[in-house]
Simulated scan of single mutants.
Amino acid sequence: MTILALGLLLFLGVHSIRIVADPWREAQIASLGRNVWRGGFSLLSAVGFGLIIWGFALARGQGSQLWLPQPWARHITILLTLPAFVLLVAADLRGSRLRAAVRHPMLLGVLLWALAHLASNGKPADLLLFGGFLAWAAVDLWSVRRRDRLAGTPPPEVKPGRDFKVLLVGVAAWLVFGLWLHGWLIGVRPFG
């Protein structure tokens, strides 16, 4: 589980810089330039993400069951991941009312995804992976909302027709991932 923990520390650590050291981050961007900062951020994120995938694959079956998921937990996971996918799409497809209302839909989507997966997985690696993302998303969501309030950030602009696109793409991505990709990539078929 060491590789998984290392990957989470790297990936979530890089993504937590604004939470714990925003002035330092701004100074680095001013010193290095935005493109160099983004390149380094992307490289460290990719390495961390790769370590998470590798580490979870290695640690997934290790350890005793910490809790036994209830038979209905699978259905809760499936249901919670649907809005998580819609929120993730809303984060990238700007202009929807959902994005304007939530403001940071990716963080809320990650939070729902992690919570959903904790409901139906009870091994130590599951707790580390999904619990780590859940805790990070909750803290980052609190932090970014606080930052927005202090800065007086207005809600994002809403564009006609975007809500339908967000919903359509989110549901389609959820179906494709649940029916085919999750089984192929992770080895678990959520829909059967």
Rank of each mutant, 00 (worst) to 15 (best):
R146L: 11
L111D: 03
K123M: 12
L51A: 13
A151I: 07
S31E: 14
L80R: 00
R18H: 09
H104T: 13
D126F: 03
R147S: 08
R34P: 00
Q28A: 14
P156Y: 09
A91P: 00
L129Q: 06
G95V: 09
V158H: 06
V20Y: 09
S143V: 00
L8E: 14
K159M: 12
Q70P: 00
D22F: 07
S64V: 07
L107A: 08
L98F: 03
G192F: 05
L112E: 10
E26N: 13
L6W: 12
F56E: 06
L118G: 03
R34I: 15
G40K: 09
F191P: 02
G63A: 07
R147G: 04
R189T: 14
V144Q: 07
Q65E: 15
V176F: 14
V20L: 11
L8F: 07
F85R: 01
V171Q: 05
P83A: 06
V188M: 06
P160G: 08
Q62S: 11
G192V: 07
I29M: 12
D163T: 03
K123Q: 14
P83I: 07
E157D: 06
W180H: 01
P124K: 11
L118E: 09
L4I: 12
W136E: 03
G48H: 06
I78Y: 04
G48N: 02
H104A: 10
W54H: 13
L4N: 10
L68R: 13
V36T: 14
P69L: 01
A138I: 09
W72Y: 10
R38Q: 15
A30D: 13
F164M: 12
A59D: 13
D22Y: 07
V89A: 05
L179W: 11
F11K: 05
K123G: 02
T77M: 14
P155L: 05
A57G: 15
A5T: 11
F191K: 06
A59V: 06
I3R: 01
R18M: 01
T77N: 14
A73W: 06
F11L: 04
S120K: 00
V171I: 14
R74K: 13
W72H: 03
F41I: 01
W72R: 00
L51F: 04
G152P: 10
L108G: 11
G183D: 05
P154E: 12
A114S: 15
L128Y: 05
A84T: 08
R25Y: 04
A57E: 10
L129H: 08
M106Y: 04
G187C: 00
L12R: 04
F130A: 03
V144H: 10
L79I: 13
G95A: 09
F85I: 06
K159H: 14
L88R: 06
S31T: 15
W54D: 08
